[in-house]
């Protein structure tokens, strides 16, 4: 079903971007946990009162009454969405688009591996890397939280938050993956594969400002990741998660289907 030599190659060639993005996200996670201080929370609350628009656009709304809320407000509104997005764009470029754009896909397809086998291997590598990234961050967050503020972090809810964020990242990977399977050139891939998630991201940022603009949330996929609701532990996010899973399957499935039947100008 998959090609092991290609999988190995994929793991090796994406290690460098992974380490960079992982290091950046680890740094932010640790720093933000380190900065947790209820007094600081009050100060930031004042900022929010002074310039609500700016803070809200960056996804930073609400009052942090616990460490988890603090993390959710300052990490999961912006940083934990943006940096994985960059990682995804690089991954899809390295795993699929690069091979198609420069023609080296011909080297892979000239072997007895079918198109399906090749593209499924690439899709799995992509998913695997994102799972590794999110698991890594989750572990760093838990360890960091426990070391700096023992017993302060609600680990279960933190894991659920990261689980949903993982699904969101996979959904975005699905968009980039499908785009790469359809496009023949980098420019189109960047325009749609990176452009569509970025557009959703901007719409999300604008809708965060509130008021009438809040209605924009109905046209961005980031609404499927209601972080504040998730950490409150109220539940009721099953629908969002199921929707994301269905979309992920659809996006990856159609990418694979399209790749297997398309013309490749190699």
């Amino acid at each position: 079903m998959i090609s092991i030599p290609l999988l190995k190659r994929n793991m090796a060639c994406c290690l460098k971007p992974f380490l960079i993005i992982f290091a950046v996200l680890c740094m932010y996670t640790v720093v933000i946990i380190y900065m947790y201080d209820p007094k600081m929370a009050d100060m930031l609350k004042q900022y929010q009162n002074m310039m609500p628009g700016v803070m809200a656009a960056a996804g930073m709304t609400g009052v942090a009454s616990s460490l988890l809320e603090w993390i959710q407000i300052y990490l999961y509104g912006f940083l934990m969405l943006l940096f994985p997005l960059i990682f995804i764009i690089i991954l899809v470029q390295k795993l699929i688009m690069g091979y198609i754009d420069n023609g080296s896909m011909a080297s892979l397809l000239a072997t007895q591996n079918s198109r399906r086998k090749i593209i499924v291997t690439q899709a799995l590598s992509l998913i695997l890397w994102i799972v590794i990234l999110m698991s890594g961050i989750t572990i760093v967050g838990i360890v960091g939280g426990q070391v700096m503020f023992p017993d302060e972090l609600q680990i279960k809810n933190y894991i659920i938050l990261n689980g949903s964020t993982l699904l969101m990242q996979l959904l975005i990977s699905g968009i980039a993956f499908l785009t790469a399977c359809i496009c023949s050139q980098y420019k189109n891939y960047y325009m749609f594969g990176a452009g569509i998630p970025l557009l959703f991201f901007l719409i999300q940022a604008i809708s965060n400002i509130g008021g009438k603009l809040e209605n924009l949330k109905y046209i961005t996929i980031y609404t499927l990741l209601p972080t504040s609701k998730i950490i409150s532990g109220e539940g009721g996010i099953l629908f969002q998660n199921m929707t994301m899973i269905v979309l992920i399957v659809l996006l990856f499935g159609s990418g694979i289907w399209w790749f297997c039947r398309r013309d490749l100008a190699l």
Binding site: C13, N102, G103, S104, Q112, S114
Partner: peptide, 21 residues
Amino acid sequence: EASEIKKDVGYLAGELSFIED
């Protein structure tokens, strides 16, 4: 049946493009 065929076929592309790194 491309993948079946490739078991017996060697190919050299006109515009060579390998994995550069």
